[in-house]
């Protein structure tokens, strides 16, 4: 068994699925939301928040059995929790580790902070371009307003 696998087993006893670790503890439930986990979800899901972490002080964690996140889904997390780590587990072993990568375009996840933006008025998908990763700076494709990390709001 690899060291990684031991680590994962300490925080997760899932046999198959995905472990999302080192989440910003203030935004765990928003991550739940953007992964479309709700009362219709059939998989076993464990959500932990305000857990002690040697690396980031307090952290959040989500474990989803029998669901394997894609790189695209992982990238969506980065919008609100850029330091998260994602492990794909098979038979208690870490099969794959994703580095969260900020997508060049963010679609249908975030609200535009501009109340006079057409996306706040008409029923259309929001779209932001990534201008800068650190600190995060997004650009609304429609109203052309810049959006900073503290203005980012999940739909």
């Amino acid at each position: 068994m690899t060291t990684d696998a031991k680590k994962v087993r300490r925080i997760s006893q899932i046999r198959n699925g995905t472990v999302i670790d080192h989440l910003n503890p203030h935004r765990v439930f928003e991550v739940v939301k953007i992964l479309y986990i709700d009362d219709t979800t059939e998989e076993t899901v464990t959500v932990g928040t305000n857990l002690q972490s040697k690396v980031i002080g307090k952290k959040g964690i989500i474990k989803i059995s029998n669901r394997f996140l894609t790189q695209e889904e992982v990238n969506r997390l980065s919008v609100i929790s850029p330091n998260a780590t994602v492990s794909i587990i098979e038979e208690y072993e870490v099969k794959k580790k994703f580095k969260v990568k900020f997508p060049q375009e963010v679609r249908a996840i975030l609200n535009c902070p501009n109340p006079n933006c057409v996306t706040s008025i008409e029923e259309i998908e929001t779209r932001f371009k990534l201008v800068q990763e650190s600190p995060i700076l997004l650009f609304c494709t429609y109203c052309e307003r810049y959006c900073r990390e503290n203005e980012i709001e999940i739909l």
Binding site: N114, N116, C117, V118, T119, I121, E122, I124, C140, T141, Y142, C143, E144, R145
Partner: peptide, 8 residues
């Protein structure tokens, strides 16, 4: 009067 309306 709405920003982004022309893009839409």
């Amino acid at each position: 009067p709405v920003e982004g309306s022309a893009r839409l």
